[in-house]
């Protein structure tokens, strides 16, 4: 199977370039990550991240044939050849398919991704009703792979100021959590022309999320809650 891989080693290369490969696949190689492993055996300079290899850790997020996804859960069958593998768009490239996620995680930390509750702790744990727990569905499953944020044009224009779909999905996850007591402060923090309101509902985030989540809907829900609180 033919591959075209984005190559860039800032220590050696003046600029990025594409390199073509022919992967000698085994019958049990089914996913793009399997093919990358084969290619790494041929050329050990190819650099990429991977860990769980089953769509849980989000390490191997990359752009495959023009679409952000996880290499470990993208079947080889059906991919047009040559399969182009590129790093996540708009993120600074460290080397080959490895990108710098510093800014992405800075935005993640900005939304305070933890429960804030100064109430006296209960004897055992903070329980939720089934309905309260239900509200977290579609939000808590985010694995922070950055497929959505890297594919969002609003993030491309203002990566340093716009929190981006992944960060805002996580923000919504804590805003709606019944155990959290800081929803008002969280919403006030997001009421900013850059942090939240750069979203234009282009929906690329929902289109490429490998977990099938919909960050655009979460962003819209944050805007509605802000509106309710101010009216």
């Amino acid at each position: 199977m033919r591959f075209r891989i984005y190559r860039y080693d800032p220590d050696k290369d003046r600029k990025p370039y594409w390199q073509d490969y022919e992967a000698l696949l085994q019958p049990f190689d089914r996913m793009v990550l399997d093919a990358l492993t084969r290619l790494k055996e041929q050329d050990d300079t190819i650099t990429y991240r991977r860990s769980c290899r089953e769509g849980v850790c989000g390490s191997d997020a990359m752009n495959i044939n023009g679409r952000n996804t996880l290499a470990c859960i993208t079947p080889l069958r059906g991919l047009a050849e040559p399969v182009t593998l590129a790093p996540l768009p708009s993120f600074p490239v460290i080397r080959d398919l490895v990108v710098d996620m510093t800014l992405f995680f800075k935005h993640y930390h900005d939304i305070r991704p933890y429960l804030i509750n100064a109430d006296a702790p209960p004897e055992r744990e903070r329980l939720q009703s089934l309905e309260e727990r239900e509200r977290l569905n579609g939000l808590y499953e985010c694995i922070l792979c950055a497929c959505c944020t890297s594919f969002c044009p609003s993030y491309w224009w203002n990566p340093d100021k716009y929190i981006g779909p992944a960060g805002l999905l996580q923000a919504e996850r804590f805003i709606v959590d019944s155990r959290d007591r800081a929803a008002a402060e969280r919403l006030a923090h997001l009421d900013d022309v850059y942090k939240l309101y750069r979203c234009r509902k282009i929906m690329n985030c929902a289109e490429v999320c490998p977990k099938g989540l919909n960050p655009a809907r979460a962003i819209e829900h944050i805007k509605v809650q802000l509106l309710r609180r101010s009216s």
Binding site: D192, V193, K195, Y197, K223, L226, L227
Partner: peptide
């Protein structure tokens, strides 16, 4: 609603 918030424009 803050004067310079994104919400006002929205």
């Amino acid at each position: 609603m803050r004067l310079l918030s994104g919400q006002r424009a929205f």
